Computed example of a mutant assay.
Amino acid sequence: MLAAPIPDNDAERLAALRELLILDTPPEQRYDKVVQFAAEEFDMPIALLSLIDENRQWFKANVGLDVCETARDISFCGHAILQSDIFVIPDARADARFADNPIVTGEPYVIFYAGAPLRMPSGFTIGTLCIIDHKPRTLDATELAILGTLRDLLLEELNGSSEAAHA
């Protein structure tokens, strides 16, 4: 398993995340609806709004998992926040970065992963909208566009929250 590298600007990225005042807050219907739609639209057993802090990925919205966070060093989202576009792993068992990851080899058996980075206007990526399956999959261009649109809806909500928090 290869943990995602920590970006040089991670302190600034974490400050941007904390400015949202969203970590460890109760579920909110506006986020839950988008994540639920993603799970249904792509027929995925798991969909998440995942926020990445120093040591964990915390799930602001969660479909299909019984946990609210996992360690950052085993997260796929830790890799996805380093990408400029949607990060897709068709079969994690065949990818050297993830093949021996405990969330691939055991519960929740993450085999397929697609994560759309949540890049704020500040330029910092705070997390992902991700969809997960227990079997290999791919996404076509239309599906990638839909996932990108759903990510953009979440970003609008997050940006609105940020502005409200600073008003």
Results as ranks from 00 to 15, higher is better:
151 R>H: 01
144 L>F: 04
77 C>Y: 10
82 L>R: 01
84 S>C: 05
22 I>V: 11
101 N>H: 07
105 T>P: 12
17 L>F: 03
100 D>S: 14
29 Q>G: 01
154 L>P: 00
158 L>C: 01
111 I>R: 08
104 V>K: 08
107 E>Y: 14
133 D>Y: 02
7 P>C: 00
155 L>V: 07
92 A>V: 04
135 K>S: 15
123 G>N: 09
160 G>I: 03
127 G>E: 04
9 N>R: 08
126 I>C: 04
160 G>W: 03
154 L>T: 00
2 L>A: 10
150 L>W: 05
131 I>Q: 00
116 A>P: 14
91 D>V: 10
149 T>G: 13
19 E>A: 07
46 I>K: 09
45 P>G: 15
126 I>N: 08
33 K>A: 15
76 F>K: 02
161 S>K: 14
131 I>G: 13
106 G>Q: 09
134 H>G: 13
106 G>T: 00
57 Q>R: 01
93 R>V: 05
103 I>G: 07
84 S>W: 00
86 I>P: 10
152 D>G: 04
11 A>N: 09
140 D>T: 03
82 L>K: 06
130 C>G: 07
79 H>M: 05
139 L>V: 07
46 I>T: 13
148 G>H: 00
74 I>D: 04
107 E>N: 10
77 C>V: 05
103 I>C: 05
72 R>I: 12
103 I>K: 12
146 I>R: 14
64 G>S: 05
44 M>K: 11
58 W>S: 00
103 I>L: 14
155 L>Q: 08
48 L>M: 10
77 C>H: 07
165 A>Y: 08
144 L>G: 10
163 E>I: 15
149 T>V: 02
61 A>T: 02
14 L>A: 05
79 H>W: 09
68 C>G: 09
66 D>M: 06
135 K>I: 15
69 E>Q: 14
152 D>I: 01
91 D>E: 08
10 D>N: 00
118 L>H: 05
120 M>C: 01
154 L>S: 01
73 D>R: 03
27 P>N: 12
28 E>P: 10
58 W>P: 05
19 E>P: 03
46 I>L: 11
102 P>H: 04
6 I>R: 13
105 T>C: 14
44 M>H: 15
94 A>V: 14
119 R>I: 13
140 D>V: 07
48 L>Q: 01
120 M>R: 03
102 P>R: 05
122 S>E: 08
130 C>I: 01
39 A>L: 13
12 E>Y: 02
115 G>V: 13
95 D>F: 08
18 R>G: 01
42 F>Y: 03
133 D>I: 07
46 I>C: 13
5 P>R: 02
43 D>I: 09
77 C>W: 10
111 I>D: 04
31 Y>V: 00
167 A>V: 12
64 G>L: 00
163 E>L: 15
150 L>A: 03
167 A>D: 10
93 R>I: 05
164 A>Y: 03
112 F>V: 15
134 H>W: 06
93 R>F: 04
150 L>G: 07
49 L>C: 10
73 D>N: 12
9 N>Y: 06
74 I>K: 07
9 N>A: 11
53 D>W: 00
15 A>W: 00
124 F>V: 11
4 A>G: 09
90 P>V: 04
161 S>W: 11
71 A>G: 09
23 L>W: 06
130 C>P: 06
14 L>E: 06
98 F>G: 12
69 E>F: 02
157 E>N: 10
85 D>Q: 01
40 E>A: 12
9 N>S: 07
47 A>M: 09
89 I>N: 13
98 F>C: 12
